[in-house]
């Protein structure tokens, strides 16, 4: 009986973990889009006061590679 309870706990923990991963991915997916012809929010594509950032640094820029062509030329620019 004791082993049965252990097994139950393990199954429960794994099922919770799987559920969490699912939520993360579905956050990214957008819901079905309806075209809103009455939308006149014309500032929507230029300004939004937004201070909660999901990502700050680029995952696609390698800073060392970025500067490789210039390293030699900038050597003397010590402050």
């Amino acid at each position: 009986m004791k082993y049965f309870y252990y097994l139950l706990i393990i199954v429960f923990v794994f099922s919770c973990k799987k559920e969490t991963q699912k939520t993360t991915t579905s956050d990214i997916e957008d819901k079905a889009v309806e075209v809103d012809s009455s939308n006149t929010d014309i500032s929507a594509i230029s300004t939004k006061d937004f201070t909660e950032f999901k990502v700050l640094d680029s995952k696609y820029i390698n800073v060392d590679n970025f500067w490789k062509p210039f390293n030699k030329d900038l050597e003397k620019y010590i402050q």
């Binding site: 939004k48 937004f50 950032f53 990502v55 640094d57 680029s58 995952k59 696609y60």
Partner: peptide, 13 residues
Amino acid sequence: GECPSGYSAIGGQ
């Protein structure tokens, strides 16, 4: 839709 100004996947925030 709901995202901050100045964010791009290539350039970051």
